[in-house]
Simulated scan of single mutants.
Amino acid sequence: MHPVAQSVAHSVAMALPEGTMLFEAAGAFEVFGSDHSDLAAPWYSFTACGPAGSRVGDWLRADTTHGLEAVADARTVIVPAWRDVEQEPPQELLDALRTAHAAGARIASLCTGAFVLAAAGLLDGRRATTHWAHTARLAERYPRVRVDAEVLFTDEGSVLTSAGKAAGMDLCLHIVRTDHGATVANALARHLVTPPHRDGGQAQFIPAPVTHGRDHPLADLLPWVLARIDQPLTVEDMARQAGMSSRNLVRHFHAVTGTAPLRWLLSQRVREAQELLESGDDTVERIAARTGMGTSATLRRHFTRVTGLPPEAYRRTFGGR
């Protein structure tokens, strides 16, 4: 990484091409562009780079004094969310990012800004993430990127990426923590009224998968399974109910849900446990029984693996919604 020198401010450039999303850009500006020298001096020197009058968030016009070429001179470059993941980023921006990276700069993307880094070739062979709604597209479009759909952010040393929206703040605080230490990052988080470090990954925010209406071979089976989620069910039980062989059941499950029957069932048990933790006060043992997990130890193991949080921590975060 790039530890900040005590006598020279670490230069941060934020790229603001046409089509930049507002939320992530504003968060990064608050962290790196505002004066927090009361926490650490010198703080970062911040530059917004982009064509004059570029639209940010579809309505705000950015009054920048530096073009995108100035990105190449920064020690850290922030690439906020890119509005249209199917649109190729400006070549000027891609060239500037490649130049900055080759010169040793740290490049960080927020949300769908990962598509810009991928287009520049900076994510090839690296672990990366983006908003959960776009991780599959990122993996499909850039197969050389090792996409991790579950984490809030990734740190590959000189290249960092974050998941959607608020996860951009998690990454910005991580950068401050890396440069200035945990005490400064924690103090800044208190100033921003945000957690200095959030447990878990973005899996905890992903809604339950939606199947393809009722026009598929499992249309009657899936509701039958969900109505018996507290009961021990096997692939054979589900195949018998669906009137097909176990092999055909597995094939249809992969076609409809993208996963195997028992893996799908486990995900539904975890989703049900999430709802019970959010809305009620049942013990973990009781929730394990109601979701077919059997024991609290089994629930804790699977719940933590899927959401990144143990049940008790999840209830503290989301309980009472």
Rank of each mutant, 00 (worst) to 15 (best):
L138K: 00
W224C: 12
P51M: 03
E30M: 06
L309R: 13
T64Q: 03
E285K: 11
R247H: 12
L249V: 11
V151F: 01
V250K: 10
V85M: 04
A313T: 15
V71A: 05
S11G: 07
Y314D: 00
T295E: 02
G319E: 03
V77R: 05
H66L: 01
A120D: 06
L221G: 06
G33I: 07
Q268S: 10
A136S: 08
H101P: 02
M14K: 05
E272H: 13
A15M: 06
T178D: 15
T161D: 08
L299N: 02
G121S: 10
E150C: 10
W43L: 07
E275D: 13
A313R: 15
M169Y: 00
D215R: 14
A52C: 01
L233G: 09
S37I: 08
T183R: 12
A227L: 09
W224P: 13
G213F: 10
A255S: 12
R144E: 14
G280L: 03
Y44G: 05
H216M: 13
E140T: 14
D155Y: 04
A203M: 09
E86N: 08
V79Y: 09
A208F: 09
R98T: 11
A118F: 03
P89M: 02
H174Q: 14
V235S: 13
G19H: 05
S246T: 14
R316A: 14
F23N: 09
E156G: 15
G181S: 06
Y142A: 08
A219C: 11
R214S: 14
H212T: 14
L160K: 02
A187E: 02
G201C: 08
V8M: 11
P42T: 12
R198T: 13
G57N: 07
E278V: 08
G33V: 08
M21E: 15
L218G: 11
R198A: 09
P196F: 01
R271P: 03
D215A: 13
V116M: 03
L266G: 08
R240K: 07
A242E: 11
I78E: 01
A25L: 05
G213D: 12
Q268G: 07
A139N: 05
P42Y: 07
G57E: 05
T112I: 12
W82H: 08
A136I: 07
A96M: 02
